[in-house]
Design a protein around this nucleic acid. Structure first.
Lengths: 254, 254
DNA sequence: ATCGTTGTTTTGTGATCACAGAATGTCAAT
DNA sequence: ATTGACATTCTGTGATCACAAAACAACGAT
């Protein structure tokens, strides 16, 4: 996984950075900056960015810089309408195909999420949550569906992770995971789907609330450099976003 | 639409060629060939191909030529599972949002399809069919969903169109379109979804049958150059696939 | 003080070149 | 005749260069 094409590694790195919310919404990713940060030529960076644009993870108008799309209420609604449909389908398909080992892993993830919630360790919770859903959907025997779901995650990621790190959640969203596990044991595919859909709906409602809050209070602190309309005139200096990457930046040459 | 970036124009051209089934499944698209066919440098072609790979319309292993993926039963199943879910969702969402003009267009398309069927004009039928579904889904007020559906069409396209041009269809799949229109008038979203799903299922079942037939009879004539396993040793001469394009090939220079 | 204008810099895009890995084609040995 | 190794060609990938459009900043007019 570490080898392969340079552009594919850059793609993976950018993808992970996006999922971790290491880029500000609205932030412009400039080819030459990233290239110098990685110590490569602009070429593979260009390819990686174009691929992310093709997947909808980044937005780029014809002749302008590529930006990470800010989350709006409209986009959020669209995203969750599709997520509900697709992840529900994956869950339903996965039910009859899930193996004993997979089910064991799922329950282990639920346990870890419980523990993380009690420790108020959001980071670990989110990681276990991702693994839970991925392991569940992974059993659906439909790689195409899986790819689509992952591309959707990539589009929510930047917004999702950023908000969750700030928010203290006294809410219990692990109940739906437990419910899903029970339904999996029963073999009730509809119930599995319903549990996953409820999980998504619950989580989505919470995030929508946070989004509304952030929209009302337009960046009181240094955060959120760009609003929904047009990006503010904050000019980013070269190499600024380099710190957001894994910094494999081999000895800034030049 | 005709202007914009070179790579975007190439992308659109390739996309259309793919939708029209002008490329053989399994055929390898080589950068330099397409570039010389268009009279451009290999660079924008590379970008366009990579974008199509990112969307799943083409498949490409790391260091080898990009190919149009052959349709297999597994892939077909995966594709239609997702299509059913997504297009059903789009139809359901579109129902309460469809305008009077859109509905008029939909019924006009149905009429045209009827006429085309009686004339056994498959070409016109397919075009009207595309317009019908696109117009319906277009009312769903979810551009993201629309993009996903179009990318799915792009993946079925090469297979879909090729088979339909060969097959004489005495089947009546216009009934579901009519049913959808009636449900739209009633405002019964579930019924609209059901009609569209039935349409897809019916069409999919037919195509699956043809696929099975083609799989059993492995290319008795000159068609189908490559099978599912490994591509045959048919070595394509440069410029062969150029005829499949719009041939904007400006005076082969050199 | 604000807005329109102009000159400079930045930044994406396309072309050409260079390199490495894969595929193919040839030839010799069994 | 088939199979193995070897040489050649092809093809994707990355680097560097050149150009045009967009963004930015400074300036001048109202």
């Amino acid at each position: 996984m570490a080898d392969a094409n340079l552009q594919q590694r850059l793609y993976q790195a950018l993808r992970q950075a996006l999922l971790d919310g290491r880029f500000q919404p609205g932030e412009a990713l400039k080819i030459r900056d990233l290239a110098s940060a990685w110590g490569t030529s602009p070429m593979p960076v260009r390819a990686a960015l174009q691929r992310l644009v093709a997947e909808g993870a980044l937005e780029g108008e014809p002749q302008r810089s590529v930006r990470v799309p800010p989350m709006t209420e409209a986009r959020f609604r669209q995203l969750f309408e599709v997520r509900l449909s697709l992840e529900g389908l994956a869950a339903e398909l996965a039910c009859p195909r899930v193996t004993a080992e997979a089910l064991a892993q799922l329950e282990a993830e639920v346990a870890e999420m419980d523990a993380a919630l009690q420790r108020r360790d959001i980071r670990t919770y989110l990681a276990a949550n991702s693994r839970f859903h991925l392991a569940l959907y992974g059993a659906c025997d439909n790689p195409l569906l899986l790819r689509l779901i992952e591309s959707l995650w990539l589009q929510v990621g930047p917004f999702f992770n950023r908000l969750f790190t700030e928010a203290d959640l006294n809410l219990r969203l692990n109940g739906f995971h437990d419910e899903a596990c029970r339904a999996l044991r029963t073999g009730d595919a509809r119930a599995v789907r319903h549990a996953v859909e409820q999980d998504l709906r619950y989580c989505g409602q919470y995030l929508a609330g946070l989004l509304r809050l952030e929209a009302d209070a337009p960046a009181r602190k240094s955060g959120a450099a760009a609003r929904a309309g047009r990006g503010a005139s904050t000019r980013t200096r070269p190499g600024q976003s380099a710190s957001a990457l894994g910094i494999p930046s081999r000895a800034a040459r030049g």
